[in-house]
Design a protein around this nucleic acid. Structure first.
Lengths: 220, 220
DNA sequence: TTCTAATGTTACAAAACTGTAAGGTTAAAT
DNA sequence: ATTTAACCTTACAGTTTTGTAACATTAGAA
């Protein structure tokens, strides 16, 4: 979605975008911008700071209260103040006019790429060496093999993947799995680790989770 | 982690960072950069493109094969080529020397903020109105109430949350849940939706998932 | 080398999860 | 108003998940 008042730029932009397989929508009613944005729910917004009737930064700030739609701020002047404000208010990137079309496309691609994990359908993959872990569905993929993890296994493996090359204590894992439930047997974790290791073994990663006796586990 | 050869800048940077409650590490051995980075496993890297012995862009490219550690590229010249390359190779942001310290700090903050969901311990929360959903553990939180979801319910709810205000077809959900397994009863989805709705009802969100007959469901 | 706390393995039963079927309800088109 | 396909609810049983306990193994200190 393009939020911009200069018609010439709007047209240029939407042509550029559509030539590159994006679907472009131009916001017309600036007075009702927030509602329109939320209604359309675009995948990304190109937001000019200087639009009539409304302050671009304030709009961004209000939008952020309700949505994480990625926003690239566009501004005419290369003022550092604007840049600082936009980033702290939640813009995902920032570009100054006049822009190089290729750079703009790259930045759009980059923003979409890095936000899609939170925002989009797929792309919830964590990686470890040659394998991918869809932490939404709990499926480990290697080549054409898929292994399903149980909920406990998912939690442990996600945690380890998010702390690769760092020692993770047993206590950390227990807290992550069961919060403060006192009644849980210490050994329950050991058993769950064991079960996860068995599944990793099926795809040749039997040594992925290393025990550091007295310290914890490490994925390295 | 600071990857930069000019000692003066290194010192300035690490002072700036430490004054702002970051822990700064300076990379010394450029020849072994990739290994050192992976070993230290910093939360963010400030990477100068022009460092001795190794090409900054190539380093980034190699790093990206093994890790998603956030990288802010630093460059002396304001060349668009560099910018374009860095973004497409996977830099999370880009800044040119000489930089304004405040801007740098803001950019660091912004990058950490937007990457932490994928990368960090916590922050796996999706939100919907007054409730939070820890999509790693599958727990819905509202006020002090917590509701545990089963794996199927997690998958459905995550999907809906990631497509708020958009109609999600039954087919989309079925594919997300069971891929192409032909044997699954159409009704299985309906039952799972029903079960999820019952749990949402417990915290007063009985109308959260709306049916659009013939089209699908919508979380709005 | 010996000892011991830390960690691992296995089997089992209770609990939770999940697809199915059978029958009920609803909304939209005619 | 009637019809009907789309969707919902409930109960049930097969399956999976999970904590426990009992015993086995191991790494590192002494």
């Amino acid at each position: 979605m393009i939020v911009e008042d200069e018609e010439l730029i709007c047209n240029e932009l939407s042509k550029l975008l559509e030539n590159n397989n994006y679907e472009a929508v131009i916001l017309k009613d600036f007075k009702n911008a927030l509602n329109e944005i939320l209604e359309v729910s675009p995948d990304l917004i190109l937001l000019d700071i200087n639009i009539p009737f409304i302050n671009g930064e304030a709009l961004l700030q209000n939008l952020r209260k309700e949505s994480n739609i990625p926003v690239i701020m566009v501004t005419s002047i290369n003022s550092e103040t604007d840049e600082a404000l936009s980033i702290s208010y939640g813009a995902d990137d920032y570009i100054t006019k006049p822009y190089n079309p290729n750079i703009l496309l790259l930045r759009i691609g980059a923003v979409l790429k890095r936000t899609k994990t939170n925002y989009n359908t797929n792309g919830n993959d964590l990686t470890y060496k040659e394998l991918k872990f869809d932490c939404q569905k709990g499926i480990i993929k290697k080549d054409d093999i898929e292994i399903e993890l149980t909920k406990n296994e998912m939690i442990i493996f996600s945690y380890l993947l998010n702390h690769q090359n760092k020692i993770v204590t047993r206590e950390e894992l227990m807290t992550t799995l069961w919060d403060n439930s006192e009644y849980v047997n210490e050994n329950a974790l050991t058993v769950n680790i064991s079960r996860l290791r068995n599944k990793l073994k099926e795809i040749g990663y039997e040594d992925a989770i290393d025990t550091r006796k007295g310290l914890g586990y490490i994925l390295s």
